[in-house]
Computed example of a mutant assay.
Amino acid sequence: MKSVTVLSSRQQKTGMLLRGARDTLPMLVGAAPFGMIFGALVATSPMLPWHGQLMSLTVYAGSSQFIAAGLVASHTGMLVIWLTTLIVNLRHMLYAATLLPHVAHLSSRWRWLLGFLLTDETFAVVAGYHQRVLSADEQRYAHWYFLGSGLAMYGNWQVWTLVGLLFGTLFPQLQNMGLDYAMVATFLAIVVPQLSRIPQLAAALAAGSFAYLLQGMPYKLGLMAAVLIGVLTGMALSKRGAQDGQKGGAA
């Protein structure tokens, strides 16, 4: 009986792992051109090809990699590169804070691994997963779903970075062909269906408006400010809605 239970547990973990990867497939399509453009950018820059692949393997942050590659090519100091990429990646703290209640019970090893694999795309998939009504088993093995999504995105990014590195010199203007719009279209397809409630809609409108108004700020500070404003707007309206619901229940 014990062996049967262990086998069932393994099957559930494997199933959740594959389910996370499967649900991330639309994001893989959107990220593919982005990874290929990064590889092509490195291939046509003073950087060596293996620098680009190593960056994808260890940094694994698309926006920061693009910025870092540009700064390296312009011979910018390492401290400036570190600080700039840090500012760009601060949004991941918001992602981590959102998902923390779902991973707080895990060991440090698990949290470090999932933290490394956390990207915009994986966050969108995993956050959407936790918004559904989950069974006890789905909640118990949710971190395997997270892992499946993260590993799918990680492998996808490595493959398309390599493709860009190998063939980027043949298409030196690849980054100007509009392929990056595939990422935008993918995010729109995921975000728009989630705007059915007032807090989410208000947060999106606030973040979008301030991102446009503050786009002239250096080091992507305007984008970070817009994200914070959007988050605070959504939190304020969600809290107000919860308070109104409690008052209505008490009445």
Rank of each mutant, 00 (worst) to 15 (best):
W144R: 10
S149T: 15
W112C: 00
H102S: 11
T122F: 07
S108R: 11
Y129L: 10
F116T: 01
L113F: 05
A136I: 14
Y129M: 04
L106E: 04
P101F: 13
Q131N: 11
W112F: 00
A104I: 03
T119D: 07
Y129C: 09
L147Y: 05
S108T: 11
H105G: 13
L117N: 01
F123W: 12
A104W: 08
L100R: 09
R111C: 15
G148I: 00
A136W: 14
F123R: 13
E121N: 12
L114Y: 06
H105T: 12
T98D: 14
R109P: 06
E121G: 02
A127M: 06
L147M: 13
E121A: 12
D137N: 10
P101D: 05
L99R: 03
D137A: 12
L147W: 01
T98R: 08
L118I: 09
T119R: 02
L100T: 08
Q139T: 14
Q139H: 14
V125T: 14
L99G: 05
Q139G: 13
S135I: 13
F123Y: 15
H105I: 03
A124Y: 04
E138M: 13
L118K: 14
L117M: 12
H130N: 14
Q139I: 04
V126L: 05
G150V: 02
G115I: 04
A152G: 10
E138P: 06
A104T: 08
S108A: 12
A142E: 00
L134Y: 07
R109M: 09
V125S: 10
P101K: 13
Q131G: 14
A127F: 10
G148K: 00
W112L: 03
L113V: 05
L134W: 01
V103A: 06
H105N: 05
L117F: 10
G148W: 02
F123T: 06
L151E: 13
A142K: 06
Y141E: 08
Y141T: 11
G128M: 02
P101M: 07
G148R: 01
T122I: 10
G115V: 13
V126G: 11
F146P: 01
L113I: 01
V125C: 02
Y129I: 12
A136P: 08
A152E: 05
L114T: 09
E121D: 10
D120Y: 09
S108Q: 08
W144L: 12
R111K: 15
L114Q: 11
T122N: 11
H102T: 03
E138C: 12
T98V: 08
Y129R: 14
Q131Y: 08
